[in-house]
Design a protein around this nucleic acid. Structure first.
Length: 296
DNA sequence: AGACGGACCTGGACGC
DNA sequence: TGCGTCCAGGTCCGTC
C-alpha cells in the first residue's frame, strides 16, 4: 500500500483526530505484527497525551507528552480507521470491507473536550510494525535514512555523491532508503519515466567525471519531487486497499504513466513505444524501452 | 558492492 | 464450487 504520498495522506487524516487527545486505554489483539510489540507497550501509551503526528520516510511518528514516540510502519496493507464516539457507535468512517479479524491495535482516546474516540490499526498481511523510541538517533529504523525527497537536503549534488562510481541499477538505488527516504516501487517507476531514464541504468552513469550531477540526474531529482507532490495532492494512490482516513480512495493511480500499464502505449509526446514490465530484484519495473535511455 | 532468493503474511484474480 | 498458481504498495537476512 503505502509509499511516502500514502503515508503522508494518512498522517494528514489522523492528525486532527489524535493531536491533543489522551490515550485512555491501549489494547493489543495479538502479541506481534511483523515484530513483537515492545515490552510494556500498552503501559507506555496508556494515560499519555498525543502531542503531534509527523512522518519520516514511510514511518508515522506519534509524539507523546512523556517524551516517548510511537513509530508505526504500515507495511503493505496496514491502515488506520477511527470512530467518533465509542466503538459500539460506528460512524461514517466505518469501512465495511475491512475484516475485523485483522484489527490488531485498538486505542481508546479521550479528546480535549472529553469526547470518546477510537483509533484502530488493521493490517491483513502484518508486514507493518510498531515500536517506541526516545531519540531518532537511537532508533534503528530512523538513524540510517536518507533525506526526505521533498526537503531541502535532497538535491542532485547530494545524490551524485551517493551514486558516484556505483554500478547498481538506478531502480534499486532509489528503493534504497539510505539514498532517499520514502520512495517505493510505484513512484520510482513513475519518476524514472518522467526523467527519461531506464531503470537498469547504472547509477554511476548519472555522475560526471568531476563527481557532479549530469543533467539527467537533475531531471530525476525534479521528477521525484513533482510526482510525489502531485500524488500527495491527489490523496495518494489506491491499488487495492489503500484508503484515506475518511474512507475515500486515493486518486493518483489514474495519473500513472507507466506503473501497471504493461503493453499500453507510452504517453510521452512523440514516442511510439510500448510500456514494458520487467523484473529487477524480484520486483516489477515498468518503463518505456524507446524513450527511457540506458546510459547517461 | 550488489544481485538474488527466500522469509515474513493474507487475499484477490485468474485458469482449469 | 473449488483448487492450484501467481501476484501485490515493504523490508530484512543469508548466500553467492
Amino acid at each position: 500500500m503505502p509509499e511516502l504520498p500514502e503515508v503522508e495522506t494518512v498522517r494528514r487524516g489522523l492528525a486532527p483526530f489524535v493531536e491533543g487527545a489522551r490515550i485512555a486505554a491501549a489494547r493489543l489483539n495479538r502479541p506481534d505484527l511483523r515484530f513483537p510489540f515492545p515490552q510494556d507497550f500498552e503501559k507506555s501509551l496508556t494515560g499519555r497525551q498525543v502531542v503531534g503526528v509527523s512522518r519520516r520516510a514511510k514511518y508515522l511518528l506519534f509524539e507523546l507528552d512523556s517524551g516517548i514516540n510511537l513509530l508505526s510502519h504500515l507495511g503493505m496493507t496496514g491502515n488506520y480507521r477511527f470512530y467518533e464516539g465509542a466503538i459500539a457507535e460506528p460512524s461514517r468512517y466505518r469501512q465495511p470491507d475491512v475484516a475485523e479479524r485483522h484489527d490488531h491495535v485498538v486505542l481508546d482516546l479521550a479528546a480535549p473536550d472529553g469526547a470518546h474516540r477510537t483509533l484502530i490499526y488493521s493490517d491483513p498481511r502484518r508486514f507493518g510494525f510498531m515500536t517506541l523510541f526516545s531519540s531518532p538517533a537511537d532508533c534503528p529504523f530512523l538513524k540510517d535514512l536518507g533525506p526526505e525527497p521533498l526537503g531541502n537536503q535532497f538535491s542532485a549534488p547530494q545524490l551524485a555523491a551517493r551514486f558516484r562510481g556505483r554500478r547498481a541499477p538506478v531502480k534499486s538505488a532509489l528503493l534504497d532508503q539510505r539514498n532517499v527516504a520514502g520512495l517505493g516501487n510505484i513512484y520510482v517507476s513513475e519518476a524514472l519515466w518522467r526523467a527519461g531514464i531506464s531503470p537498469t541504468m547504472p547509477t554511476g552513469a548519472l555522475v560526471d567525471s568531476a563527481g557532479g550531477a549530469k543533467p539527467a540526474l537533475e531531471m530525476l531529482v525534479a521528477a521525484i519531487k513533482s510526482v510525489l507532490e502531485e500524488a500527495i495532492a491527489a490523496g495518494g494512490s489506491t491499488l487495492k486497499d489503500f484508503r484515506q482516513s475518511d474512507g475515500a480512495p486515493g486518486y493518483f493511480q489514474h495519473n500513472f504513466d507507466v506503473y501497471d500499464r504493461a503493453d499500453a502505449p507510452c504517453r510521452r509526446a512523440g514516442c511510439n513505444g510500448t510500456i514494458t514490465r520487467m523484473v529487477q530484484s524480484g520486483r516489477s519495473s515498468f518503463y518505456c524501452p524507446v524513450c527511457q535511455a540506458e546510459s547517461g
